[in-house]
């Protein structure tokens, strides 16, 4: 135990790497592999031919046996490597008879050769199936799901930014009776997760006639205590004298908000925008309840429905999984510094 603690409590700046350094790097490397491998596996699998995807043992890369046309044979034949008298030759397999494989040399289609099946192995080449991606978009509803997800994410993010920044402006740049109470009320909604009020929230959406409607997914999400908190903390750093100067400059309160305060809050707005896009893109339980007809499904709900319906179509499921993962990954690659800084600063996800 104490050796683990020793390792854990090491501080930096010793001479040369010692055991604890090796252990640290081992931990990080193994961790990185554990993070990367399942995703990488799904990614390469999503490119495999439907016939290859369920093969066991699997090949890591998307490969498929080579098929060739040989003169005199109607259907295409698989290309195999055969060992004959110490030589390795590439032959096409016609049929198997017991432990014998009847093969033909593509260069010389007239003559058949019998080889023991133990001496042959299939020739494989890299084979990518883009249809895994194009088919679901064309044949199934995925293009609609994608459109719905983009719509929900965009509208929800714009409204989140607008509503939350207005509330944050009121709570940070005005002195009025009830301000602290309002702030506490808004922050207290952090303690009421959706999963607790899901049944009555559903009733409210029914009452608003927004069941099976994308607005029923959007509206409940646009007032976020996290967003109000993050923006308010940022706006508190904007000097009050700027607002007073604008007031003397005859700006209306709304103009103060959008011409003076909002532009100065841009960094915090960007962080909230990133979060909002990721939250709304990934939402599952609430859209699952609100949306009923497949035409209205978001990508996550559609993906879940699809995987329940076509459990064997892993090539499509994985391709659509990758499609759903792509925007978040792009955002992450370009903006991860803002995301991690945003979380470290507010402690809220």
């Amino acid at each position: 135990m104490s050796s683990i603690v020793n390792f854990l409590s090491r501080t930096r700046g010793k001479n040369g790497p010692d055991l604890t350094d090796w252990l640290s790097w081992f931990w990080l490397l193994v961790g990185t592999l554990i993070v990367a491998i399942p995703i990488a596996w799904a990614a390469v699998s999503s490119l495999k031919q439907p016939s290859e995807i369920q093969r066991f043992p699997p090949s890591f890369l998307p490969v498929a046996p080579v098929q060739i046309q040989v003169e005199g044979y109607d259907s295409s034949l698989g290309l195999w490597e055969a060992e004959i008298d110490g030589d390795t030759r590439e032959l096409a397999l016609i049929r198997r008879i017991g432990i014998q494989a009847q093969m033909v040399d593509p260069e010389n289609p007239g003559e058949t050769i019998n080889v023991p099946t133990s001496a042959i192995s299939p020739v494989e080449s890299l084979s990518i199936a883009p249809t895994n991606y194009t088919d679901p978009l064309e044949r199934f509803n995925f293009l609609t799901y994608l459109k719905n997800s983009v719509f929900v994410t965009t509208m929800a993010t714009i409204l989140t930014l607008l509503l939350n920044s207005m509330a944050a402006f009121a709570l940070s740049k005005y002195k009025f009776r009830g301000r602290n109470a309002m702030f506490i009320i808004i922050i207290s909604t952090l303690m009421i997760p959706l999963s607790v009020v899901i049944v009555p929230a559903f009733l409210v959406v029914v009452g608003l006639n927004m069941i099976d409607n994308l607005w029923g997914v959007i509206l409940p999400t646009i007032a976020t205590p996290t967003g109000v908190f993050l923006l308010r903390q940022y706006m508190l750093t904007i000097p009050d004298e700027l607002i007073e100067a604008a007031r003397i400059d005859a700006a209306s309160e709304f103009r103060i908000f959008w011409r003076v305060v909002l532009p100065l809050t841009a960094p915090a707005l960007a962080v909230l925008a990133i979060f909002s896009v990721i939250w709304r893109w990934n939402d599952f339980l609430w859209p699952l309840i609100v949306l009923i007809r497949p035409d209205n499904f978001t990508l996550q709900v559609g993906l879940n429905a699809f995987q329940g319906q076509f459990t064997t179509q892993w090539h499509y499921i994985l391709a659509m999984t990758m499609l759903s993962l792509a925007p978040v990954t792009v955002i992450f690659v370009f903006l991860q510094r803002y995301i991690t800084a945003g979380i470290a600063n507010t402690g809220i996800k």
Binding site: G31, A42, N282, L303, W314, L318, T321, S324, T340
Partner: peptide, 21 residues
């Protein structure tokens, strides 16, 4: 960044990626 990346994924994606793995 590497360890943080999965946090951003959707639960559906995480479930499917691991089910396949």
């Amino acid at each position: 960044a590497v360890f943080f990346y999965p946090v951003l994924l959707s639960p559906v994606v995480v479930g499917l990626v691991w089910r396949w793995f």
